[in-house]
């Protein structure tokens, strides 16, 4: 289980990490723990898969990549098959079932914006289902931080 120190680490280090020669020591000072303890706790939380990673969160578009949210409406009897086929594409970053007629929602991340359309066409070919492409048009807010 997570104790108060783990929680403090998560809450603080989602907001940034020093870019300097001794960053863990500097971050640890703010948390009133030692550098060794901070590193050990991060290792453990990564191992327990409570953290996805410790590093950068990139802006895919500014890196020149393509990014889109896509949805499909899959009949119940085809759902497992289509989920497997969709997830087999390395460009599919994550995929969730949702409770709506459009019941499969996934994020597509490609090396170039032009690849989005061609991967979508390949997914439609392989699965036999239509894909609704819903790329971001305007961004009002990105926080995505979780208090624990």
């Amino acid at each position: 289980m997570m104790d108060s120190v783990d929680r403090a680490i998560i809450n603080r280090l989602q907001g940034g990490f020093p870019v300097s020669d001794h960053p863990y020591r500097k971050a640890a000072d703010h948390l009133d723990i030692s550098e060794a303890e901070l590193i050990q706790r991060l290792e453990q939380m990564l191992e327990k898969r409570q953290l996805s990673r410790f590093g950068p969160l990139y802006n895919a578009e500014r890196l020149g990549g393509g990014l889109s949210l896509c949805a499909m409406s899959i009949s119940e009897e085809d759902f497992e098959r289509v989920a497997e086929q969709v997830n087999a594409f390395s460009e599919v970053a994550h995929n969730y079932a949702r409770d709506h007629r459009l019941n499969m929602w996934f994020v597509l991340a490609t090396e170039t914006p032009a690849r989005i359309e061609s991967v979508l066409a390949e997914i439609e070919d392989v699965t036999g289902y239509q894909v609704y492409n819903m790329p971001k048009k305007e961004e009002f807010f990105v926080g995505l931080r979780f208090e624990v």
Partner: peptide, 19 residues
């Protein structure tokens, strides 16, 4: 890269489900 917004954030990326 951070100043230019190419790195949106550096540090912990959580698995929110596991939290």
């Amino acid at each position: 890269l951070q100043d230019e917004g190419i790195i949106k954030r550096l540090g912990i990326v959580v698995r929110h489900h596991e939290l």
